[in-house]
Design a protein around this nucleic acid. Sequence first.
DNA 1: TCGCATTTTAACCAAAAGGTTAAACTTTTC
DNA 2: GAAAAGTTTAACCTTTTGGTTAAAATGCGA
Lengths: 204, 204
Amino acid sequence: MTEIKKDNTEEKILNAAKKVFTHKGMDGARMQEIANEAGINKALLHYYFRTKEKLFEAIFRKVFRQVFPNINTLINSDLPFEEKLGTFIDKYIELLIKNPFLPSFILKEIHRDPEFLASVIKSSGVKPQEIFGMFEREIEAGKIRKANPKDLLINMLALSIFPVAAKPLMKIMFFENDNKAYNDFLLERKKTVKEFILNSILIK
Amino acid sequence: MTEIKKDNTEEKILNAAKKVFTHKGMDGARMQEIANEAGINKALLHYYFRTKEKLFEAIFRKVFRQVFPNINTLINSDLPFEEKLGTFIDKYIELLIKNPFLPSFILKEIHRDPEFLASVIKSSGVKPQEIFGMFEREIEAGKIRKANPKDLLINMLALSIFPVAAKPLMKIMFFENDNKAYNDFLLERKKTVKEFILNSILIK
DNA sequence: TCGCATTTTAACCAAAAGGTTAAACTTTTC
DNA sequence: GAAAAGTTTAACCTTTTGGTTAAAATGCGA
């Protein structure tokens, strides 16, 4: 792997900022630390992104797009319901395992600036209606139990996101702080969460 | 409700600190703001709690005890399994609705200082083994499906905690930012979460 | 009334942090 | 080869913030 050094300083900054912001949050992050992490100096950091605010906004939007990816293609695909749901959970848990700091970062900033959050969501093109529609069609077809689609979606998110967001706590409380054991547990959940949900909603 | 004003300054400080810390986190909280909230001045604040660190630790322990209350009495009671589980979820969701800032506060600080977190847990007397035992007995008795008790407990926590922790986000995304609608939804979940779990695990 | 803890006022300090600036050096581009 | 853009260095500024201090008030029990 030869030096790819694309001279792309902006990218270096964004990566460094993502790392520092997602670990420490807006309040805890330090511009100096981001500069260090990017291997540049503070002056250059401000040369690219004038203020901490602007840099943070860029990162937050980036992370948000990643955590709430465009799943419309999946939802609107021809796959049968069970596979859609299974794929959704697989992809989601995989994403979260690879980026364990994203959930708590989002949760952290959710409360800090709800106005900003609303603006990010509006410009992100998420379409929960399509997911609700999917559930409603299955309910009408008598394939799954009657339930509020909002409950179902939030349950899916909760079961996928919470164990990653609360990892440090769960790891200590239930896994004697054994990191590998907890990671294995999270991987296993790709299967168990799917079963847990389908067992609950499918009509046999 | 007449003024109970017990002149108890320490209590006033703790309440104010809890409010500010749970809203803003350790990094975002300001000693001046806590003093204002308590209706006293900064000098007096430091007179009672020498440093921000010490004050924060006191609050964190307090909040932690509240969020992970001693549920052993419930688990070890004579109630049948379904009622234990139902009561647990009822109490938990009620607690969280009344204290909506606790989950995200805990999640926020989880990552900041895992060492400290571990020490708080060790001195808190939580006994997950007893909950696991409850599930295992039901599995052996053939009343509920075979499953990892850790999965079951974490699922219960996820379904209860996540919707409150992520409230600002969920409210905007799925409820057009209608606060009352979301609160009603949370209340309703006391029932739906119970059903969702029992449908999934009970063997009929 | 004396003594003691509590509380206020207000000024102050030092460190941290975001941000600026100017000068100089390097690399890219045309 | 010159202009432009990128980058470094280092000093500097301002504001915020946690924390201190000293003096004076307040309240209170012995």
